[in-house]
Simulated scan of single mutants.
Amino acid sequence: MNDLIHAVAAFLLPPTGAFPLLLLAWWLRHRRRWLSGALFASGLLAVWVGSTELGALWLQDRLLGPQQAVTVQALRDVPPRQSVIVVLGGGARRLMPEYGSAQLKTVSIERLRYGIWLSRQTDIPLMFTGGTPRDASDDTLTEAGVAARTAREEFGFTLAWQEDRATDTRENARYTAELLRGKGIRRVVLVTHDVHMRRAMRAFREALPPEVELVAAPMNLALPGIEWRDLLPSQEGTARARYLGYEWLGYVAGH
């Protein structure tokens, strides 16, 4: 059933989510011509929004609100050992043939790299949270374990903590809060992609004690201004729109 829900959701995400509008417009073309035309125009607009960088960013700003990058200076008013940078895992594969071993997915690598950069700039210890990948054959392989190995071997960096039980954002928050309990942490700096940040912040705010400050450190933020290429369909625009649709549905559903 869970796979069926994911399959239906995948079809409804941009830009294919506009297909029902276009099909309904075609079905009504002889019965309600004005309604058919309106639906067809709405479907075309939805396809454009769901496949261009400008359309996806416009929709993201209205659904999730604007976000800003955290500054290194803003993280230096609390002693480093009373803070922790928490990187949220975005997935791993149990085997990548070209490496011959388990590897992090692209979004996880991006988050880990940014978290390591922030840690080196501020001396704040780094934690990675992520459990067993979906395609793993057993629970001995965890995303946090792969992240620790990647950080050590590819970045020469050692994680302070690994949270290796979480399988979704709420569990990331709950198990992280449990692991940090009693360690004197006053501030948590949360690293994830900008589209995921709103849902992640809600989950961590609910899980952490109220006296612990929560700071958003979003990544993959868009540059200000637009170019004419942003109006054209692109892989980046489609990927952002689909990710946005997935995160917005998850936020509305309370996950």
Rank of each mutant, 00 (worst) to 15 (best):
A222V: 00
T192G: 08
Y114E: 13
G184M: 06
P218Q: 12
S119I: 04
R187M: 08
R29A: 01
A10Q: 02
N2C: 06
G250R: 10
V47G: 07
L159M: 11
T52L: 09
P15G: 01
P97M: 01
G131Y: 01
K105Q: 15
L214W: 02
T122G: 01
P15K: 03
I85N: 10
V87A: 06
A216Y: 04
D77T: 10
K105E: 14
F128A: 08
A56W: 12
S83A: 11
A177N: 09
T192S: 15
W48Q: 04
G156I: 00
E53M: 11
L249G: 09
T238I: 11
L159A: 08
A10K: 01
L180Q: 10
A144V: 08
L28W: 07
A222M: 02
G225P: 08
V87M: 10
L54T: 08
L141G: 03
E153Y: 13
T169R: 11
L22R: 00
V252W: 00
W58N: 15
E171K: 13
V87K: 05
D3S: 07
K183W: 06
L44W: 05
Y246E: 04
A177H: 03
D77G: 10
S101L: 12
E206M: 05
G91F: 10
R93W: 04
G145K: 04
P133I: 05
L223E: 09
L221A: 02
V47F: 09
P66N: 11
L75R: 05
Y243F: 14
R165T: 11
T169V: 10
R181Q: 15
H193N: 12
M197S: 14
A216H: 10
T52M: 11
V252Y: 06
L12F: 00
W117R: 15
R113Q: 06
E153A: 10
E236N: 03
I85E: 04
Y175I: 05
R170W: 05
Y114D: 06
